[in-house]
Every structure is written in C-alpha cells, then in structure tokens.
C-alpha cells in the first residue's frame, strides 16, 4: 500500500530567517502573522506560494515569508504578479501593497489587474500615509490632514479604495481592521479560495506617521458600534447590543434601530456578496457610519486564465502547426537549387 503523508505546515514553516524590521507596534506584524497562520490552512504547498511586492513599508513583506518572493519596484507588483501567474497558473500568487504603491504610482496597474480578473490575491495595507518616505500624504489621506508634504493641511480629496476597486470591476473585495488577526486570517483563506482577483483592504495603523488614523473605527471599545461586519446571507446588523441594522431608503442606506418605529430584524437588508450588480456593494464601501468590513463582494466570474486557456486549447486542436518548423516551411516558399 502506498503511504500518502500529507504534510501539515505550521506558521513556522512560513517564517523566513530574516529579522523583521517594521516599527514596534505596527499593524504590519499582525498582517504578517495572520498570513503565516493562514497559509497552513490553505492546503497549498510552500514551494507553490509566491509573494510579490512593490515599494513601501508593506512591500518588505516577501522577505519575511519562507516562500518564493520578489520585492520589486514602486507600483508595478500587479504587473509582475500577473506575469508569474500566467507563466505558471498552479502558483498561489499574492501581491502585498500599500495605499501609495497601489493607488498613486501604481494606479494604472491596480485598476487593470482588477478588470482582467486574473486569479491573484492582493492585500492592500491602507494607512492613509507614506511611511517609508517618512510621512507625506497619500491618495487615501483625508482633506485637511497635516503631513510633511501638507503642513497646512491636505487639499487633495482621497480615493476610497473599495469604491475605486469596484469601479474597476473587482469581483472580490474585503475590508478588515488591522488589529483582528483571526478575521484577517480567515479573509486571507477566503481570498485564496476565490477564483479571480481578490482584494483585501486592511485598515492598518501607522504608529509613527499617522497614529490612530482608524482608532475611532477599529479600537476594541468602539468597533462593534462603528463597524458593520458583513457576512454573506446574513442580515446587516451591528452594534454592541446587536440592535442596529441597515435598510435601503430610496437610493440611500439608512441606519435603523431594531425595536424602534416598528423595525424588526426581518426588515433589514440581507448581505448578498455574490450578486453580480455591484450597486449595493458600492453603497456599502462608501458608507461612513457604520464602516462596512468583512467580505463586501465575492462575485464568481470567469477568470482571465480560463478564457485564455479555452482559446489556447481550441487553437491547438485546430492548428496544423505542432512544431516551429511546420510554420517556417508553410505557405509561400520556394527552393533554390
């Protein structure tokens, strides 16, 4: 009898020998550990995992993972990761990026990778600031935010990453606080399972240059009241007392209280992450109170590789060219004696 031993990894198998050099207290440590814990749960071989990053604090990530990895150039990780995946579709490919890397210098690649729906996973560390260059405003910094490059206040309105992503055609979008490792781990596993480009936005605190930027949303004592954690098929309910919820009032989402004005749980919207039409998902990502977290959109669609693969098979089946010589000597040739 053949002995099949399935290797079960632990997080240690995914920890590289490199010293982690982020600032003490940075949420990046949480994301790193969440990933190292998520990978053993994915059932993927270590040699089949590739991390690709651009430039910025978040982009140091690949060095700390004991997998294949490339720390590349500013903004270009989606392009490089696309090439990796197209060359070998068997790989689990992860893009680790920040708000500046993905939406400023790499904005073009970010929207196009989402549009194509290649089976990649993108983890966006959003801290609304440039960390590695030491504190300039980013494309997600708020208007009025004082930074090294906006001493009198930022005058450029921000992107909402989820809004941009859904506008670009993202099939999978999740948002999660940077201080909840279990939920981050689970979302990474879900992103891995999803066929197509998945995007996870982590609301990541930068302790040095933008400390507390999400504390009014993610701190333990407020998060239940300020966030609505969405789960597919479940009512949109939130609050410490689980008594608040969302309903649709004309073209706007409205917060209601269960038990007031005759509202019951039955009246609340039920989250449908798999809906093709992103209209409601768009409204959810834009919502300022409560801030929507969890998997907001997870629409199953044909991937780029599936389309390409189908065409390749079809062309191969119908082609008379098996070897390059068949092509070179085909058609109009003539012989000189």
């Amino acid at each position: 009898m053949e002995a099949i031993t399935e290797q079960k990894y632990t997080f240690k198998d995914f920890t590289s020998d490199q010293e982690v050099r982020w600032c003490p207290g940075c949420d990046d440590y949480v994301i790193l550990r969440s990933m190292q814990k998520a990978l053993p749960e994915m059932g993927v071989k270590r040699e089949d995992v590739v991390f690709i990053s651009g430039i910025g604090c978040s982009s140091r990530f690949p060095y700390y993972m004991n997998t294949y990895g490339m720390h590349t150039i500013h903004g270009r990780a989606p392009g490089i990761a696309s090439g990796v995946k197209l060359a070998n579709p068997n790989l689990s490919v992860w893009v680790m990026t920040g708000d500046g890397d993905s939406m400023a210098i790499g904005g073009n690649h970010f929207i196009h990778v989402l549009r194509r729906n290649i089976d990649l996973n993108i983890v966006l560390f959003n801290n609304e600031i440039y960390g590695l260059t030491k504190g300039q405003f980013s494309p997600t910094s708020l208007v009025g935010q004082k930074t090294k490059s906006s001493p009198y206040g930022n005058t450029q309105p921000p992107f909402i990453p989820g809004e941009l992503a859904l506008g670009a055609g993202a099939r999978f979008f999740g948002r999660i606080g940077g201080n909840v490792p279990k939920e981050i781990t689970q979302m990474m596993i879900d992103a891995h399972k999803f066929k197509g480009t998945s995007l996870i936005e982590v609301l990541q605190n930068c302790v040095i240059f933008n400390d507390g930027c999400f504390s009014n949303i993610t701190d333990k004592d407020v998060k239940e009241d300020k966030q609505i954690f969405l789960e597919h098929g479940k009512p949109m309910i939130f609050g410490k007392n689980r008594d608040k919820g969302l309903v649709l009032n004309k073209l706007k989402l409205e917060v209601v209280t269960i038990g007031e004005n005759g509202i019951t749980q039955e009246d609340l919207l039920v989250h449908d992450a798999k809906e093709k039409d992103p209209t409601l998902h768009q409204m959810l990502v834009r919502l300022e109170y409560p801030v929507a977290t969890g998997i907001i959109r997870s629409f199953d669609d044909v991937t780029f590789e599936e389309r390409e693969d189908a065409l390749t098979k079809q062309v191969k089946a119908n082609s008379k060219f098996k070897k390059t010589d068949d092509l070179f000597f085909s058609g109009e040739t003539y012989t000189v004696k």
Binding site: G83, V84, L86, N88
Partner: peptide, 22 residues
C-alpha cells in the same frame, strides 16, 4: 503567451514575472 498589457511598464513587468516563474 502574448499578453497585451495596460502600458509599457506593465509589459516589461509581466515579462519579469514570467521570467521569475520560468
């Protein structure tokens, strides 16, 4: 695998990724 990318940079970037992957 001929990949028409969104710009010149993504063109070479995807090629670098493919090269890394063999």
């Amino acid at each position: 695998k001929a990949f028409q990318a969104e710009d010149e940079i993504a063109g070479i970037a995807s090629a670098i990724g493919a090269s890394f992957a063999g």
